[in-house]
């Protein structure tokens, strides 16, 4: 049906308290016509996965500026899988070194976005990836 909207959970896991980027991305996605659930700071992987389940989102976007990305991303993916939400697009951004980004993407994570990313690129990528996911669901 044409009424379907892209639903995105924007979350900040762990201890870092810098949420300017997360709020900017949340606003940009809203202005692109998406429904964005913002959960606030200091979320545990379990809380993020539980919120993703309750909200039935298509995308989970993480903002990580603390350097803990190599541990947090996989833990959140496991928590999502444990809730039968393994097919949700898991993406994010922050201060993530290129090597780590490549390692995470090689490990099957969705695209990650570093500093300087154009917001229009984030919107375009999410729209494309979600529509592919919906097409797979229909099939």
């Amino acid at each position: 049906m044409s009424d379907r909207k892209i639903r995105v959970l924007i979350a900040k896991p762990g201890l870092d308290g810098h949420d300017r980027g997360a709020k900017t991305v949340a606003t940009v996605l809203r202005d692109a016509g998406m429904e964005v659930i913002y959960t606030g700071l200091h979320q545990t992987p379990e809380m993020i996965a539980e919120a993703a389940l309750q909200e039935d989102v298509d995308v989970v976007g993480l903002s990580i500026l603390s350097g803990a990305h190599m541990s947090l991303f996989p833990r959140i993916r496991e928590a999502l899988k444990a809730r039968d939400m393994g097919d949700v697009l898991l993406t994010g951004g922050g201060i993530i070194p290129e090597d780590d980004m490549a390692a995470l993407e090689a490990d099957g994570f969705s695209k990650l976005f570093g500093p300087g990313t154009r917001t229009t690129d984030i919107v375009a990528w999410i729209e494309g990836a979600v529509k592919e996911r919906w097409a797979r669901e229909e099939a």
Partner: peptide
């Protein structure tokens, strides 16, 4: 734009881990 920023969960953080609570944010569309 049809978009929405749903922020009510921020004030319901204590309830997120409780398996006897279900929270759903909904846009008015």
């Amino acid at each position: 734009t049809g978009g929405a920023l749903l922020g009510d969960r921020i004030r319901m953080e204590e309830l997120t881990g409780d398996q006897h609570v279900y929270i759903r944010s909904m846009a008015s569309r």
